[in-house]
């Protein structure tokens, strides 16, 4: 049954906090022939009502992905925290592609810095960690979507389980 505005949001407050935390973010779509496309994202913002998720991409590093999303293909986004392996995947039927809005750039840089700090503490070198998050630069843009499914993907027995909204 299609979800309506009156349904509770799929994401609970803990999820929303997790998505905006020190997580690796990878975005996927596919073309008409069902050939997948993939790109890294450099940060995330969840709307106050938790019905919209925005992730930030580098335009030139996401050419195939943006082509597929612009053609109206669905999106899948995985968020994984290296320190805990905690992982969830969101899916959305389509995305809105738009330039960064006010506050987005600062948000993206903060996400990148937090992620770099976390992986440096895990033993990755500083030069690697900074280089990994550096592409969050001038060609950044945003994609926004409404999650219509949330999956637990932390390695282990519950991996793959579809998460339902809380009461």
């Amino acid at each position: 049954m299609p979800r309506t505005k009156s349904d509770p949001p799929l994401l609970d407050a803990m999820h929303a906090e997790f998505l905006g935390g020190p997580v690796a973010i990878n975005v996927a779509s596919r073309d008409e022939a069902r050939v997948p496309s993939i790109a890294r994202a450099y940060g995330c913002r969840v709307a106050a009502d938790r019905r919209e998720v925005v992730v930030f991409l580098s335009r030139r590093r996401s050419t195939a992905l943006l082509r597929d999303l612009a053609a109206g293909a669905p999106v899948a986004v995985v968020f994984s925290r290296p320190k805990t392996h905690e992982t969830i995947q969101l899916k959305g039927a389509r995305v809105r592609i738009r330039p960064l809005a006010a506050g987005d750039r600062a948000r993206m840089l903060a996400c990148g810095a937090a992620f770099a700090t976390e992986i440096i503490a895990l033993g990755y070198t500083e030069s690697f960690s900074r280089a990994l998050m550096a592409p969050a630069g001038d060609d950044a843009m945003a994609i926004a979507f409404t999650p219509d499914a949330v999956f637990e993907q932390t390695p282990g027995p519950k991996a793959g389980q579809r998460l339902e909204p809380g009461p």
Partner: peptide, 10 residues
């Protein structure tokens, strides 16, 4: 059904 999936690989 055309729905993409993305996952981490060790």
């Amino acid at each position: 059904d055309g729905v993409p999936n993305v996952a981490k690989l060790s």
